[in-house]
Nucleic acid binder design. Structure first.
Lengths: 142, 142
DNA sequence: TCAACAGTTTAGAATAAATATAATCTATTA
DNA sequence: TAATAGATTATATTTATTCTAAACTGTTGA
């Protein structure tokens, strides 16, 4: 399947018609060699830099949210002022460097499976996220 | 040590002078029978309801942030539009019910210790949080 | 008693992310 | 072509958070 077809497929499955703007968003999100983390602002900037078409903020928000609902990207639970998203939807976790405001992947192999023994009646677990906040390790402070 | 003294102690250690408003905030945060989760908005509402003094938003934000820095309360990493805090600073984790927008504690005993094998040079881990997002378990959808 | 001061509190302004709106545009179908 | 449904956009709105500047408080020392 050609890349463009994959994008159209993802869009249709998300309940969205494939349009110029939305396909451009797919190109940025899913065509990268590697998965990556982004904020909406950063995503808009990337599109502006590499595209010859204009995409409005509203369209980016709508499209990203539709992909989220469908599980094509995921939100990283960080209590920051803005939302962070990840195009890597495989099972993995994150360091968050609070001083540099930077996210770092932790591969699945580097964290034992998180096993939650408790359940809530009528509810099922949709995702489990581990966030390890890191700061400078100054030896001076014990 | 009397309660009031504990509050004054906490405030001083956080670099804040004990004032009427700040002690009121302490009463709400640290005098409860149980620990609890809150947003700033909720905290302000609680204070308004049970206090005969007026406390401004700015004072609440400043005081909560000072306590955070000192580790007397902690932030719960949820990607919501607003910040959630927890007066329970012991080691534990959370379910987040996405449909009801509600946090539920998971006791330490109910989750195996999260063991992160990877380290980042020059950095140390300040906190490890597990967030399990839960949704209704409709049997109809597989 | 008064003046000086350092730190507090406050209302309101400013900022910024996210969402909503309403007008215009596009593409498909009849 | 006309009708339509949905898409896109600029702009306005909303909301949490942070900032600011003025007024306030309490202590110290003359």
């Amino acid at each position: 399947m050609a890349y463009a077809d994959q994008y159209i497929d993802k869009l249709r499955k998300s309940g969205l018609r494939p349009t110029k703007q939305r396909i451009k968003i797919c190109e940025v999100l899913f065509d990268a060699e590697k998965t990556f983390h982004f904020t909406i602002k950063e995503l808009v900037k990337i599109i502006e830099n590499q595209a010859n078409i204009k995409v409005s903020l509203a369209t980016v928000y709508n499209t990203v949210h539709a992909f989220m609902r469908k599980g094509y990207i995921k939100e990283i639970p960080l209590n920051a002022s803005q939302s962070y998203y990840d195009t890597n939807v495989t099972h993995h976790h994150h360091f968050f460097d609070e001083e540099e405001n930077k996210l770092i992947d932790i591969h699945q192999d580097d964290v034992d499976e998180v096993n939650i023994k408790r359940t809530i009646p009528g509810k099922k677990i949709r995702s489990v996220e581990v966030i390890a906040k890191i700061v400078s390790d100054n030896q001076s402070q014990k």
